[in-house]
């Protein structure tokens, strides 16, 4: 009898416990790798996302070169950030999935108007992670930046951005600040500290000589980006920019410098410069 019950329970659970309500198949998700925020007219918020195209990436590894872009850029607007994100669903056949988002890019105008209410969404949302980096585009909107910028060496722009921001963590360079959403919010919330985000700029590349065919068959990268310097906030509003040298100063003060180059005048010969590499800097926790 008891054997029968055990068999019954096993069969019953096996047939009912096959999955859960919130099951999401991998091929129904669109992985967002970077996300941009702007404010447009009529106090609307515009969200621009990079969605990775897995098939394009896969094809590229098969035949070594693929002319197809490995990502899809799409924007949508809404009265709040959440509404804008939900409106993306109207255009995206795969549900955007934010857990792998690496960057939150903010347009300059939007940053000057204040970002607290927008970032709050990403701080509280169950999918987004607080490890995404916060960047502010100098002199442009996030939409323009995300639509144009690519890197020669990486198929996904977010991979390129990730590669550059890795230098700060590894301590190869001291110039950009390292700013995750978590540290941004922490500084925003704390008394006596104001947040500093990464400054990014679109950098136009020289157009190649007509007719020349490079190894890259895909569209020539016309605009790339530069991550350096810092965007200074007061409260949640952007108030100014720091250049690379000033940013290194910030990193000295906050104890984040681990390595980098210092260029100084040579003491005993006028007009000449000496570069010093920082090898060991005292690190604050």
């Amino acid at each position: 009898m008891s054997k029968f019950i055990i068999i019954f329970i096993t069969a019953f659970s096996a047939s009912t416990l096959t999955g859960c309500w919130n099951r999401r198949e991998l091929d129904t998700l669109g992985f967002v790798t970077a996300l941009g925020v702007d404010r447009t007219g009529e106090s609307k918020i515009e969200i621009t996302v990079h969605v990775a195209k897995p098939f394009a990436i896969a094809r590229a590894t098969e035949s070594s070169v693929s002319p197809e872009k490995a990502f899809w850029v799409v924007s949508s607007t809404g009265s709040t950030a959440f509404e804008a994100i939900r409106n993306l669903l109207l255009q995206s056949p795969r549900r955007p999935f934010y857990a792998h988002n690496r960057f939150i890019v903010i347009g300059e105008e939007c940053a000057r108007a204040g970002v607290g209410d927008i970032l709050d969404l990403f701080a509280r949302d169950g999918e987004a992670r607080r490890l995404a980096r916060v960047e502010v585009v100098k002199g442009s909107t996030a939409r323009q930046f995300l639509e144009q910028v690519e890197f020669e060496l990486e198929r996904l722009p977010s991979e390129g951005g990730q590669g550059i921001s890795r230098y700060v963590q590894e301590g190869v360079s001291a110039e950009p600040v390292d700013c995750t959403l978590n540290s941004f919010l922490r500084c925003l919330e704390a008394e006596g500290v104001e947040p500093v985000a990464v400054r990014v700029e679109a950098v136009p590349k020289m157009p190649a000589a007509p007719g020349s065919v490079g190894d890259l068959l895909r569209d020539q990268v016309k605009i790339s980006s530069k991550h350096g310097g810092a965007a200074v906030f007061k409260g949640d509003k952007l108030v100014g920019w720091l250049d690379e040298r000033e940013t290194r100063g910030v990193n000295w003060v906050t104890g984040k410098v681990r390595s980098g180059i210092l260029v100084i005048d040579q003491p005993n010969e006028k007009g000449k410069l000496v570069s010093l590499e920082i090898l060991r800097a005292p690190r604050a926790s």
Partner: peptide
Amino acid sequence: AVFGPTLSSLMLPAFSLARMIS
């Protein structure tokens, strides 16, 4: 140490802490 003053807005602190692991 991880969340600072934003700690009070977290519903599930231990869970959020594990999400910060990288």
